[in-house]
C-alpha cells in the first residue's frame, strides 16, 4: 500500500483556487521532489498533507489515516509526519536540545533520559554534536535548519516533508543541509521535497513532479523530466532555471 494517496485535491482562498485537482501516490521509501514556478501551489500542497492547510475538496490518505475523516486524530497523524520549514521555525526560547526533546517528552513517547540520548545521536547525524546547549539565535541559518531536521526526526516519523528547506540559506550553507537530506534518503526515508535545487532533485529523487497553475503538469524519473521534458510549460521552466 502506498504511503501517501492524494485524490482530486482542491484548495481555494476565497475566489482564488490554488490547487485545482491534484492526484499523487507516493510509495514507501520513495523520494519525490516537487519543482515548479513560484505560486504554482507546491507549498500549499505540502501543507495540506499534514493538515496545516485544510483542503476545500478531495481526499488525502497517509499511512492508512484518512485526513478528511472527522474521526481521525490529527495529532496522531502528525506524529508520523516530520515537517521542515523554509524559515526553520526553531523555538527561540529553548536550547537546541530542548527544541529536539520537547515533543517526544511532552507526548510521552520517551522518557527525558531516552529523549536526551536520542537527541545527542541525531545531533551527531546532522553534524552539530557540540551545539546541544546553544540557543537557536546563536546558530547560522544552515545550522538552524539542520537542528530543525533533527527535531522532526526525533518523533521517528515515517514520512518527511521538506518545504523549500534551503531557500532562506546563504549559498555556502546549502550543501550541509542537502548532505543531511541525502543521508536520510539513502537510509530509506520516505520524503516529499519542495525545492528549487535542481541538482539535488536530479541526484536524489526517485521521481520528480512538475507543478504549475495548481496542477501536476508532468512527472517521471529525474532523467526523463530534466532531459526529455514533454510539456512546453516544463521546457520553458527548465530553460529559465538552468540558464540563469
Amino acid at each position: 500500500m502506498a504511503k501517501v494517496i492524494v485524490k482530486d485535491l482542491h484548495k481555494s482562498y476565497g475566489d482564488n483556487e490554488v490547487l485545482k485537482g491534484l492526484n499523487l501516490e507516493v510509495e514507501d521509501n520513495e523520494v519525490v521532489c516537487m519543482i515548479g514556478p513560484s505560486g504554482s501551489g507546491k507549498s500549499t500542497f505540502l501543507r495540506c498533507l499534514n493538515d496545516l492547510e485544510v483542503p476545500t475538496k478531495g481526499q488525502i490518505v497517509i499511512s492508512g489515516y484518512d485526513l478528511s475523516d472527522k474521526g481521525t486524530n490529527i495529532n496522531l497523524v502528525r506524529e508520523n509526519i516530520g515537517m521542515v520549514f523554509q524559515h526553520f521555525n526553531l523555538f527561540p526560547h529553548l536550547t537546541v536540545m530542548q527544541n529536539i526533546t520537547l515533543a517526544p517528552v511532552q507526548l510521552k513517547k520517551e522518557s527525558k533520559e531516552t529523549a536526551d540520548a536520542t537527541a545527542h545521536e541525531l545531533l551527531k547525524t546532522v553534524g552539530l554534536a557540540d551545539k546541544a546547549d546553544a540557543m537557536p539565535n546563536s546558530l547560522s541559518g544552515g545550522q538552524q535548519q539542520r537542528v530543525a531536521i533533527a527535531r522532526a526526526l526525533a518523533m521517528k516519523p515515517k514520512i518527511m516533508l521538506f518545504d523549500e528547506p534551503t531557500s532562506a540559506l546563504d549559498p555556502e550553507m546549502v550543501g550541509d543541509v542537502l548532505d543531511v537530506m541525502k543521508k536520510l534518503a539513502a537510509g530509506g526515508m520516505t520524503m516529499i521535497v519542495v525545492t528549487h535545487e535542481m541538482g539535488f532533485a536530479k541526484e536524489v529523487a526517485d521521481r520528480v513532479v512538475f507543478m504549475a497553475d495548481g496542477l501536476i503538469q508532468e512527472s517521471g524519473k529525474p532523467d526523463d523530466v530534466f532531459d526529455h521534458p514533454k510539456s512546453p510549460r516544463l521546457q520553458d521552466f527548465l530553460n529559465k532555471v538552468i540558464n540563469v
Binding site: N75, F85, N89, L102, R151, A152
Partner: peptide, 23 residues
Amino acid sequence: VDDGQMEAARSLGLPYWTAMRKV
C-alpha cells in the same frame, strides 16, 4: 509570536493547548 511557531509545534504532533503552553 510568529505563526510559524505554532505550525512547527503542531507539525510535531503537539496538541493545541500544549503548543500554546510550551511554545
